[in-house]
Design a protein around this nucleic acid. Structure first.
Length: 448
RNA sequence: GGCCACGUGGGAGAAUGGUUAUCCAGAGGAUUGCAAAUCCUUCCAUCCCAGUUCGAUUCUGGGCGUGGCCUCCA
């Protein structure tokens, strides 16, 4: 039997995945904070864990619970609401809607549960109270802080040591904190900002708490896999672990921690100050969700991935080719290739698909099906062939009947030996974004 | 300063203690009225130094270089 191997950030080693209960696999991935349009970096995380979810479903007969949260209360959201002069919920609803559209266009499966932070305030207050009672947290002037000194394993995931962190120069020192590294569990809200009543006055939860609370509620005190972007290791995941393990008196929050690398844009870090953030919506509009998906898995998930036009163009050409052998037939996907099981080696698997294509192109139907299944396993071929061909239709101002008319005119010119006219028609269509290909007995067209 | 990752052909990107993926680009060919698409063939690589080894791109140590985290960030 093939084993799934994952690189566990906790040990920085690639290990064989052994679930707590093979009848109920638990996967938690940090979802978005809904304050602005999700970008292609978010998309990478989405797709990586979507593929992991798909693999687990095949391996464990669909007995997988995949939780992906939505953080809809956070300082960044409050900031955005002030800036745009909009109510909090207007922003969170709008961004959540866009996020869902993005997920769909990228062909990500729906998670089993998609809990929202604001639906779990009560549980967060409970956890905060409990941490105070147990001596891991303390109140100071309407704030509640987690005391990092109370947890001896603090820093273990991110491989940081408290003494060195203290020596760091740029930590904001709040007088309210006992230790500069202590982080907030609850903080007061201004009257105009969103807040909930709590034993410490009207306020709101600190970041991190929502994931601790929701993962426990839907997956239990210790679960199988917790994932997210590389930058969440510290402080987000470190703090989640501290809260949860102290509160539950457990050794681990999750047995496997999986983190994906960053997306750079033309070799630059994606950031607001560079103004080079590419939103999923824009990327999908420009290249289609399929192409974006394939591009984002063209490097191994732990490696950095550079987003540039050449990459996207390349992936589009690959899909154009692969769609030659597209079939509606799905069959039953019952196994996962060893390459993919080896720490989700998607580039290696893509290479395998190229080989499968090559074999299948000779016409053997079984091989064609196998090729299709491989594509579908990693979430490709979500569109039918015609859907794929016309994904750019909206941005091209030519009607299908016009194209067909022109092709007929050209066929006539060709039969009369008037090749210069035929070439002229072809050139005109190309300028309009329509590519013509003469096949044996017919002429086909596609959007460029 | 601390921690971490990475350095493979012109570009992208896997893998591997010995037999050198894959894609794009380049070259040649088949096909085509010409193209396009497709197919076939083909050129090109493992940052530097030392060690382990019969043998290292792969393991170990050192160096150089790049990037990330330590502050909100996927």
């Amino acid at each position: 039997m093939n084993n799934l191997k994952l690189t566990n950030s906790f040990t920085r080693k690639k290990v064989i995945f052994k679930p707590i209960n093979s009848k109920k696999i638990s996967l938690y991935a940090c979802g978005p904070t809904v304050y602005e349009n999700p970008h292609v970096g978010n998309a990478r995380t989405l797709i990586v864990f979507d593929i992991l979810f798909r693999i687990l479903k095949v391996l464990y007969d669909s007995k997988v619970t995949y939780v992906r949260n939505i953080t809809d209360i956070d300082d960044k959201i409050i900031e955005a609401s002030h800036k745009n002069k909009k109510k909090i919920y207007e922003i969170t609803n709008k961004v959540t809607k866009i996020f869902h559209e993005n997920c769909k266009s990228l062909n990500c499966l729906l998670p089993t549960v998609e809990p929202k932070a604001t639906d779990h305030i009560k549980e967060m207050i409970q956890m905060t109270s409990s941490l105070i009672d147990k001596g891991y947290a303390y109140k100071n002037k309407d704030h509640v802080y987690f005391s990092v000194n109370s947890y001896k394993d603090y820093g273990k995931l991110s491989n940081k040591n408290l003494k060195e962190l203290k020596a760091g120069t740029r930590i904001e020192i709040s007088d309210l904190k006992k230790n500069p590294m202590d982080f907030v569990l609850w903080k007061p809200s201004k009257d105009e900002d969103p807040g909930w009543n709590s034993p410490w006055g009207r306020g709101r939860p600190g970041w991190h708490l929502e994931c601790s609370v929701m993962s426990e509620k839907y997956l239990g005190k210790t679960f199988d896999i917790h994932g997210g972007g590389l930058d969440l290791i510290f402080p987000h995941h470190e703090n989640e672990i501290a809260q949860s393990c102290c509160n539950n008196n457990t050794k681990n929050l999750a047995n496997y921690w999986v983190h994906n690398g960053f997306v750079t844009i033309n070799n630059e870090k994606m950031s607001k100050s560079f103004g080079n953030i590419v939103s999923i919506s824009d990327a999908v509009k420009k290249y289609s969700g399929q192409v974006v998906r394939l591009a984002l898995i063209s490097a191994h998930y732990r490696q950095p991935l550079d987003w540039n036009d050449e990459l996207l163009k390349n992936q589009k050409n690959v899909l154009d080719k692969w769609y030659n052998l597209y079939t509606e037939e799905n069959g039953n996907i019952t196994e996962v290739d060893e390459i993919l099981l080896d720490d989700l080696n998607t580039p290696g698997f893509i290479s395998k698909i190229h080989q499968l294509y090559s074999e299948a192109s000779k016409g053997d139907e079984k091989k064609i099906l196998k090729f299709n299944q491989a594509c579908k396993l990693i979430g490709l071929f979500s569109l039918s062939k015609s859907g794929w061909q016309s994904f750019k239709k909206d941005s091209i101002n030519v009607s299908e009947s016009y194209i067909i008319k022109k092709i007929e005119e050209r066929a006539k010119a060709k039969s009369e030996g008037n090749f210069s006219l035929a070439d002229k028609i072809r050139k005109e269509l190309l300028l309009k974004g329509v590519l013509i290909e003469d096949q044996k007995n017919k002429t086909i067209w596609k959007f460029k």
